[in-house]
């Protein structure tokens, strides 16, 4: 194991100044479940590990039906699905939070860390995208917000600039008739990285038969997690039926531009994009109808 210093700032400003001072030799530690393994495998070299779990904002999990959810970047997965109000309001996020790693990982791993690791296959990314989440970023020049689908710059890369870090994620309050779901495909073992992940959310009208709006997102089929805007847009105004689901699935398959690697071929992944979109969209509609 490479040697590193461990610091635990207690304010956002302090964290920013440490990060700004050390540049790419510093790395934020939230749960550490990705970072520590990367350090051990020498995939990353750092001198300073900046633990942000002591910051009040990054540890915050605050939900209200009016304001929505403020999810601190260091909140571990188990706190999210352990909160029944949050679990009821954000079912897609919960699906993902329960899937990330084993239980021993979920006690530490955070959604913030999952997206900052910027794997194209990050389970939380499609879920956050369909929940229309935004990222709150602190840095030397103050704060800024970006939509979660714009947070990723490529495999392992985000839009975070030197000195910046992710403080929290905001999820808008769900409208009446809202439902969401996330599914992934990991046939070889539970702990595998998704071959394809798919998230869907819908808002149904009062009759619960017509789709007012929808969002579809895919993981592991492009260099970054993908919002399939065309699919969501096409669903608006359609009856919540099989034909609508098929149309969204076809658009998702069209939008996917996967590569072939050890986990699956591009052809297989394109096909799975449709299958998983179909399944996750059906689940989202069912949840919206049950709500």
């Amino acid at each position: 194991m490479q040697a590193f210093d461990y610091v635990r700032p207690t304010t956002v400003d302090e964290a920013v100044s440490i990060l700004a001072r050390h540049g790419d030799q510093a790395r934020v530690l939230s749960g550490g479940t990705d970072l520590i393994v990367a350090l051990r495998e020498s995939r990353r070299q750092v001198q300073v590990v900046v633990d942000i779990k002591a910051l009040s904002e990054t540890a915050e999990l605050a939900y209200s039906p009016q304001a929505g959810l403020r999810l601190g970047a260091a909140v571990p997965c188990y706190r999210i699905y352990g909160d029944s109000a949050v679990a009821a309001a954000y079912p897609g996020l919960i699906d993902a939070a329960r899937l990330i790693g084993g239980i021993q990982i979920q006690g530490r791993a955070s959604i913030g860390g999952n997206i900052c690791n910027a794997s194209p296959a990050a389970d939380s990314a499609p879920a956050l995208i369909v929940h229309a989440a935004t990222c709150v970023i602190a840095g030397p020049h103050g704060r800024r917000e970006v939509a979660v689908e714009d947070f990723f710059a490529g495999p392992g890369r985000t839009v975070l600039q030197p000195g910046e870090f992710l403080v929290s994620i905001r999820l808008p309050a769900p409208e009446p008739g809202f439902g969401a779901a996330y599914l992934r495909f990991t046939p070889r073992n539970e702990m595998d990285i998704a071959v394809v992940g798919a998230g869907a959310s819908v808002v149904l009208d009062e009759t619960r038969r017509t789709i007012r709006s929808a969002r579809i997102a895919l993981g592991a089929v492009a260099p970054t997690p993908l919002l399939v805007a065309a699919a969501g847009n096409a669903l608006a105004g359609l009856p919540a039926d099989d034909a609508a689901v098929e149309q969204a699935a076809a658009l998702a398959e069209e939008a996917a531009r996967p590569i072939t690697d050890m986990r699956g071929t591009a052809e297989f992944r394109k096909h799975l994009s449709a299958v998983l979109t179909r399944r996750t969209l059906r689940a989202a509609i069912a949840r919206a109808q049950a709500a």
């Binding site: 530690l29 779990k53 239980i103 021993q104 006690g107």
Partner: peptide, 15 residues
């Protein structure tokens, strides 16, 4: 750790 299970192999001791 405080009742919550962790993989101690990647848990920095100072946490």
């Amino acid at each position: 750790v405080d009742g919550c299970s962790v993989d101690s192999c990647i848990y920095p001791a100072f946490k």
